[in-house]
Design a protein around this nucleic acid. Structure first.
Length: 320
DNA sequence: CGTGTTTGACCGGCGC
DNA sequence: GCGCCGGTCAAACACG
C-alpha cells in the first residue's frame, strides 16, 4: 500500500536552512480526532506516532496511550504513573525522512479543583510565614492531599531544535537526565504571572530527530507574541494563541497550515471521508475538538479549529 | 539591572 | 527503610 503522510516533510516544505523545524506548531490533529470513532485499520497509512491522553486523575496522572501505526494499533492504559507514557513513545519505530505529528486530547477538564505545586507552595508560605524555608532546610511537610496535575497532552515532532516556538514565553527551570535515554529532559514554565502552564521537552532516544513535548495546564492569558487582534487578523495556533499576520512565526505557520490542510484534504478524500458532507456518520470524528473547545476558557481557543476550521464545513464546527 | 539558563541539591512517590 | 527516579527549587552565572 502506498504510504501517505499526514504531516509535511519539513525539509521539503521550507528548506532546512530557512527556518528551524517548527512544523509541530501546527498540530493539525490536536484535539481533533476521536479515534474511538475511527476504524483504525483505515488509518494504516498514517504516521501518527502516538496519541496520548493525559486526563487528570484524582491522584497521579493516568495515561491512556493510543498508537496508530501502519498495521499496528494498540491501546494502552498504564497503571498509575507516567512511566509507561515515555516507554510507549519510545517504542515507536523511527520513521526516517518523514515528519510525524501526534496529538492527544484531554477529556473533561476538572480545572477548578486542580491545585498546582506553586499554589501549594504559596499556601505553605502563608501558613508558615516567619519560618525560614530555604531549600537547604527541610521544607514544611505537605498536607496529606496528594498532588494533582493539570491536564496534559503530548505530541511528537520531528525537529532539529528541542525547544519549539509556540508563541509563548517560557522559562527553563530544570533539566534532568532521563533514564534509558542519552538525551536530557528540559522543564519549562510559562513566564507570565499567575500562569502555571508547564511543558517538558525531551528527545526520543529511539529516533533522535523526534522531539517529545508535553504541555501541562492551560494558559490564562493570550500569547505574548501577539499584541492583540482577533482570530481573523492573525493565525491561531492550537494553543489558543493568535499570531499577527506579519509575524514571522505566523507566516511560517500559515505556510504549513496550507500545506497540511492540503494533506488533510487529500487524506480524507482517499479515505472516503466526505469532509464536506455533513451527512456522513464519519463526521463524528470531528466532534471531540468542539467538545474540548467548549471546555477551554480562551476565546481564541474556542474559535480555533486548526486545520479543520478550513477543511470541515463551518456548520460542522458551530456550537449546537 | 532585568531576564533567562545552568546545575547540584532537595523533595516526594513508588517499588522492593 | 532504602534506593531509584521524576520533578522542582534556587543560587550562581551569563547575557543584552
Amino acid at each position: 500500500m502506498e504510504k501517505k503522510e499526514m504531516a509535511v516533510k519539513t525539509e521539503d516544505a521550507i528548506g532546512s536552512s530557512s527556518f528551524p523545524c517548527y512544523n509541530s506548531n501546527l498540530y493539525p490533529f490536536s484535539n481533533a480526532f476521536d479515534f474511538s470513532e475511527v476504524d483504525k485499520s483505515s488509518l494504516g497509512f498514517m504516521e501518527l506516532l502516538g496519541v496520548q491522553d493525559y486526563s487528570p486523575l484524582p491522584e497521579l496522572p493516568q495515561l491512556s496511550t493510543v498508537s496508530v501505526q501502519p498495521h499496528h494499533s494498540t491501546v494502552k492504559v498504564p497503571s498509575d504513573n507516567g512511566k509507561e507514557c515515555s516507554e510507549v513513545l519510545n517504542h515507536q519505530p523511527a520513521t526516517p525522512n518523514s515528519s510525524s505529528i501526534s496529538s492527544a486530547s484531554s477529556d473533561a477538564v476538572n480545572d477548578e479543583q486542580n491545585k498546582t505545586l506553586l499554589d501549594q507552595a504559596e499556601e505553605d508560605d502563608d501558613e508558615e510565614e516567619g519560618q525560614q524555608k530555604t531549600k537547604k532546610q527541610l521544607k514544611p511537610k505537605k498536607t496529606n492531599q496528594k498532588r494533582q496535575r493539570e491536564p496534559r497532552f503530548a505530541f511528537m515532532t520531528k525537529s532539529e531544535v528541542d525547544h519549539l516556538e509556540d508563541g509563548y514565553r517560557w522559562r527553563k527551570y530544570g533539566q534532568k537526565a532521563v533514564k534509558n535515554s542519552p538525551f536530557p529532559r528540559s522543564y519549562y514554565r510559562c513566564t507570565s504571572v499567575s500562569c502555571n502552564v508547564k511543558k517538558r521537552v525531551e528527545r526520543s532516544f529511539t529516533d533522535p530527530s523526534v522531539v517529545v513535548t508535553t504541555y501541562e495546564g492551560q494558559h490564562t492569558h493570550p500569547s505574548p507574541v501577539m499584541p492583540r487582534s482577533g482570530v481573523s487578523a492573525g493565525y491561531a495556533n492550537n494553543f489558543g494563541s493568535v499570531l499577527p499576520p506579519g509575524n514571522y512565526l505566523s507566516q511560517y505557520q500559515h505556510y504549513h497550515h496550507q500545506q497540511q490542510q492540503q494533506h488533510l484534504v487529500n487524506t480524507l478524500s482517499s479515505l472516503g471521508f466526505p469532509y464536506n458532507d455533513s451527512s456522513s456518520p464519519k463526521n463524528a470524528v470531528f466532534t471531540q475538538e468542539r467538545r474540548l473547545c467548549s471546555n477551554h476558557g480562551t476565546n481564541a481557543f474556542l474559535r480555533d479549529h486548526g486545520l479543520l476550521q478550513d477543511v470541515v464545513p463551518s456548520h460542522m464546527l458551530k456550537e449546537e
